[in-house]
């Protein structure tokens, strides 16, 4: 069975959804931290890289899958919190440009630590790779990981939405993203809100690490970097400061990436990054505040 136009097949469509879902998670992870700290965390991809290495090592050491995943979560969360304490907080009052370049530095640092420790060839992602086997859904073979990725992403986003709308911490995080100063004057604790955002963002990075490392099979020091740049573009495209536009932006670019990657012949798909970024630039020129942003949001100067 083939979808009517192009040579888009259901499995490709499913892969697009899956990649869109993971990118949406990453987008929200980046967006949450931006909301409270006004900081674009370029090192987000390196958190994912670290998580993917943790998974790979877990498999290599013979951990059961659940333990590898737990290990991955531990590493990513630990690193997120460390990054927050050592870099984000000391730089909180500096200009967005300095903060962005600082996260650039952290990304570069972590990538080179990985290079030094694990070498340029990387590691095989390990035991979870069996999830690349397909499920037979009414005669269409769709990779298990595609279904799992999409379902997990949706689940995570629903839980996040509940957290943001139904709990005091979520309310505080939303208020801090809109007007941190006033929120603090009302008694919203800055440290809690920042920690909350960093931890949720780290959790999403860990989930993304699991999903991406299954799909990409090998983990190298540059793992997640290209994805992060695309997600950043998607987030800015959607509108950074709001979870839902950010989600949509991240999803769109992931979906486009997944679909086009499957549909284009290889002599064209090598230019896929160019297509995506050209599209991003065109959209930004037309709507500098983002595709899904309402009205004129404040623009951070970088």
């Amino acid at each position: 069975m083939t979808l009517a136009f192009l040579n888009l097949t259901w499995p490709t469509f499913a892969n697009g959804l899956a990649l869109g879902g993971v990118y949406a998670l990453m987008a929200v992870g980046i967006g949450l931290v931006f909301g409270v700290l006004r900081l674009v965390n370029f090192a987000y991809g390196q958190l994912i890289m670290a998580g993917a290495f943790a998974l790979a090592f877990g498999s290599q050491w013979g951990f059961p899958n659940w333990a590898s995943i737990l290990f991955c979560f531990g590493v990513v969360l630990g690193l997120s919190v460390l990054m927050d304490l050592l870099v984000f907080r000391p730089l909180r009052t500096h200009s967005p440009a300095v903060m962005l370049v600082a996260t650039f530095a952290v990304a570069f640092l972590l990538q080179n630590i990985a290079l030094l420790a694990f070498g340029p060839l990387g590691k095989s992602a390990g035991a979870l790779a069996i999830l690349n086997a397909p499920w037979d859904i009414g005669g269409v073979f769709i990779k298990k990981i595609a279904v799992i990725s999409f379902a997990t992403a949706v689940g995570c986003l629903v839980i996040l939405q509940l957290l943001l709308t139904r709990t005091p911490l979520g309310l505080h995080m939303r208020a801090a993203a809109m007007d941190f100063r006033t929120a603090r004057l009302l008694g919203v604790r800055a440290n809690w809100v920042i920690s909350g955002a960093v931890i949720v963002s780290g959790l999403f990075a860990a989930v993304s690490a699991v999903m991406l490392s299954v799909q990409e099979l090998t983990v190298v020091p540059t793992f997640g970097t290209q994805d992060t740049i695309l997600v950043l573009a998607g987030v800015v495209l959607g509108g950074l400061n709001r979870p839902i536009p950010a989600t949509l932006g991240g999803f769109s670019i992931g979906f486009a990436n997944g679909i086009l990657g499957g549909v284009l012949p290889s002599n064209q798909s090598q230019y896929l990054p160019s297509f995506l970024f050209a599209a991003v630039i065109v959209v930004l020129l037309v709507r500098p505040n983002g595709l899904f942003a309402r009205g004129g949001g404040t623009v951070e100067r970088v």
């Binding site: 208020a175 009302l186 008694g187």
Partner: peptide
């Protein structure tokens, strides 16, 4: 006033509870 225009009246008030 510095109210949070995108939040509901209820949510604005619940933010006040942060100072309790």
């Amino acid at each position: 006033r510095r109210i949070f225009g995108e939040l509901t009246v209820d949510e604005n008030l619940r933010l006040g509870l942060a100072g309790r």
